Amino acid sequence: VRLLAAALQEQGCPAQVVEATSLIITDDHYQSAYPDWAATQAAVRAVLPPLLQSGIVPVVTGFIGATRQGVVTTLGRGGSDYTAALLGAALPADEVWIWTDVDGVMSADPRIVPEAHTIEELTFREVAELAYAGAKVLHPKTIRPVIEAGIGLRVLNTFNPTHPGTRLVAEKPPENHSSIVKSVTAIRGMKLVTVEGRGMLGVPGVAARTFAAIASTGTNISLISQASSEQAICIAVPADAAERVIAAIQDEFYREIQGKDIDRVWATDEVVIVTVVGEGMRSTPGVAGKVFSALGEQRINVIAIAQGSSEVSICFVLRAEDTQAAVRTLHRQVIPHQEVQA
Rank of each mutant, 00 (worst) to 15 (best):
A207M: 13
I314Q: 03
G12T: 09
G259W: 10
Q298H: 00
V71W: 15
R282A: 13
T158K: 15
V317Q: 02
A116V: 12
K191Y: 15
D81V: 11
V71T: 07
T21L: 03
T185C: 14
L223H: 01
C234N: 11
A304V: 04
G134C: 08
V184H: 09
V327A: 06
I151F: 03
T61R: 08
R77P: 10
A15G: 11
I233A: 04
A241M: 10
G70F: 15
W97A: 11
G55S: 05
M281P: 09
G296Q: 01
P161G: 02
A46F: 04
V113P: 00
G278N: 03
K191G: 13
T323C: 13
I147G: 12
T185F: 13
K141H: 11
R255H: 02
I24A: 01
D103N: 10
E230A: 11
V102H: 01
D101F: 07
S80W: 14
I143M: 10
L52I: 10
S32I: 03
A15S: 15
S32H: 05
T166P: 06
S80M: 09
G218S: 06
V195G: 01
T323M: 12
S178D: 09
I187V: 12
G62W: 09
A215T: 02
S179K: 05
R2V: 15
N176E: 05
S229L: 06
S178R: 07
P92V: 10
L156D: 00
V277D: 01
G202E: 09
K172N: 13
A149Y: 11
I300A: 00
E256P: 08
F316T: 08
T158N: 14
T142F: 11
A43L: 13
A170N: 00
N157W: 14
P285E: 14
P173Y: 14
A66S: 13
Q16A: 02
V72Q: 01
R167P: 01
K191N: 14
A227Q: 04
P174D: 12
T100K: 15
F159S: 04
P145N: 02
T323N: 12
W266I: 14
N176I: 05
A342M: 05
Q324N: 00
G152M: 05
I224R: 00
L138V: 05
A215L: 07
T268E: 07
T61E: 05
V57C: 05
E256R: 02
P336E: 07
E339A: 00
S228V: 03
E126K: 08
V195S: 00
I305D: 02
A66L: 09
D28K: 06
Q258Y: 02
V113F: 04
K182F: 09
R144P: 04
N157T: 13
V113D: 01
T275P: 15
A90L: 13
C13N: 04
P92G: 13
M200W: 04
G278H: 12
V146G: 00
T74K: 07
A90S: 08
D322F: 10
A5E: 07
V102L: 02
S222H: 00
H139Y: 01
L330C: 04
Q69F: 11
P285G: 09
A66D: 09
D261N: 08
I314H: 00
